[in-house]
């Protein structure tokens, strides 16, 4: 009899401990540590620097995994803005992007203004890669475009340039504060990586509107949001404090990591 009551008491204690655990987890107090701009958030975000340093050390110049034709099993899944409604973009689209010009400027010796014909006339690279979205899904597609390094060399990057910023056509946010067009940036290591291309072709066709026509960047060793679509202008900068809210990318300004290698 004694044993039975002992185990029952112990069982109740066990339930109590488990219950207390649930209570703690149900508490919204934990939200405070993730408050953007807060001290705790700053500590948590320091891990991004560690990830960036560790991956730059480990990943080096290595190429992202490439796949075969057989791995292309579905159309490329579009995400984010899939059809910019901005007037200048719609005009370009109506004319088949004939008057489109890619501007390359900032810290360069020779600012460029390239037509799609100019871009397509440059040496091309085709790669079948896996696109990893920050949400968690993946999709394999074939991308054709000009290596960004070739474009940069043509413009002549000045020594002090450390980042490549992509300014885009698409308005991703409309608020009382105004309209925000998409922007992204990468460092020179990713910019000069052989698989980093300005893509104009996808799965053996012209890059579709929903996937970023006429030009989008592929940064194969990072997550999808780094691969800006609808590129209007490429700017070389020393730092990105004056771009957007100063964290280097539309999504970084909204709490995501600037370095999205994980």
């Amino acid at each position: 009899m004694k044993n039975v009551s002992m185990s029952r008491r112990r069982f109740l204690t066990a339930s109590g401990v488990a219950g207390a655990g649930l209570l703690v987890s149900g508490c919204d107090a934990l939200d405070a540590i993730t408050q953007r701009g807060g001290h705790m958030r700053g500590i948590l975000e320091s891990a991004e620097w560690l990830t960036y340093r560790a991956q730059r050390l480990l990943v080096g110049e290595s190429l992202a995994q490439e796949f075969t034709e057989a791995d292309i099993r579905q159309p490329m899944r579009p995400n984010g803005v899939t059809h910019p409604q901005d007037a200048d973009y719609l005009d370009l689209q109506a004319a088949g992007f004939e008057s489109y010009r890619l501007a390359v400027e900032g810290l360069v010796e020779r600012p460029l203004s390239l037509s799609l014909g100019d871009v397509r006339a440059m040496p091309a690279r085709t790669q079948i890669t896996r696109h990893d979205c920050v949400e968690g899904w993946s999709c394999i597609a074939k991308w054709t475009g000009v290596p960004l390094a070739a474009v940069l060399d043509r413009a002549g990057v000045r020594r002090e340039a450390r980042f490549v910023v992509f300014h885009c056509f698409d308005t991703i946010e409309r608020s009382l504060a105004g309209e925000v067009k998409y922007y992204e940036s990468i460092d020179m290591i990713d910019a000069r990586h052989p698989q980093t291309i300005l893509a104009y072709g996808m799965n053996d066709t012209l890059l579709p509107i929903e996937n970023g026509a006429p030009l989008r960047v592929r940064v194969e060793r990072q997550l999808g949001y780094k691969m800006a679509k609808y590129i209007r202008r490429i700017e070389l900068v020393e730092n990105y404090v004056d771009i957007g809210e100063g964290r280097g990318s539309y999504w970084a300004d909204r709490g995501y990591e600037w370095y999205a290698g994980i």
């Binding site: 934990l30 939200d31 540590i33 993730t34 948590l44 891990a47 991004e48 990830t51 909204r254 709490g255």
Partner: peptide
């Protein structure tokens, strides 16, 4: 965090 917030979830997760 308790609300839908992928960015913050990732920051916490990787730390």
């Amino acid at each position: 965090p308790s609300g839908q917030d992928l960015a913050s979830g990732r920051v916490v997760h990787f730390f």
